[in-house]
Design a protein around this nucleic acid. Sequence first.
DNA 1: CTATAGTTGACAGATTTTGTAAGGTATGAT
DNA 2: ATCATACCTTACAAAATCTGTCAACTATAG
Lengths: 142, 142
Amino acid sequence: MRLSTRAQYAVRAMVDLSLHSEGRPVSLKDIALREDIPLNYLEQLFNRLRRGAIVESVRGPGGGYLLARESSAIRVGEIVATVEEPLTPVSCMDKGKGRCTRTAACTTHNVWEMLGERIRTFLDSITLEDLVIEARGRGGEE
Amino acid sequence: MRLSTRAQYAVRAMVDLSLHSEGRPVSLKDIALREDIPLNYLEQLFNRLRRGAIVESVRGPGGGYLLARESSAIRVGEIVATVEEPLTPVSCMDKGKGRCTRTAACTTHNVWEMLGERIRTFLDSITLEDLVIEARGRGGEE
DNA sequence: CTATAGTTGACAGATTTTGTAAGGTATGAT
DNA sequence: ATCATACCTTACAAAATCTGTCAACTATAG
């Protein structure tokens, strides 16, 4: 029951981006340096975030990434789901394999389904803005 | 954010065990057959469950496994945590690596910590008995 | 004393995650 | 124009984890 570092990186990077952008694009190089995340890896993540309409890109010198919306309209669950694909605890819920006819399987599925719902609900209850405010409050070291 | 099949197997096997034991030990061979789980793999899982004081073993012919407690006193979260080791979404919370001084990292850690708490709380709110009752209600096919 | 069934450790195959490499494309500045 | 910046994309390799297998052992009922 581990969250991939992909997801952790993505959320951290989004917080960092919010903290350091003042209407102007922030380059991945800067984020990578500050957050100690491999640049090429970050690029992949931000590709997904862009396709997920969470960030927008500006190419060329002085370019970088911008939030596609206000930070109060971006939920953590969205970020995680976008880079992590399935936010469901078990796989058989994605396709409909029908194998749920076996003995105890169907009963336990309900549990995993509810668990997934709890996880999504919780992560969706937190916005990027919440994290930025908390990070700012944490003080000005660095 | 996937639950290992280890954990899924373990919970299913525990439900199966509860359903088919009437005070008498149930052999892993039977569970493996009914639930379509590799026997050798099940053995490993039940080793952990035994060390976790969730089941008791009876060796020799006619032997098998018994619940170590009433099913109402066994929580799903316990089963999962026992076979899956860490039920924390990120790794840096296990040892205390101190790297939490970096920029946005500490802020996001709070989120993962709270998430882990939610997951554990939810899974601990469901007992094995709950699942057994639900499975019985599901009908007598098989 | 034999068959059953739990106990244990080592290990291999498969999958997933994480990270690297290498090239491409758009664009602002000189 | 051309150059440097920085996004964009694909392919691939290294590492970790998960899943499953094998083999040998121990306890015990009949």
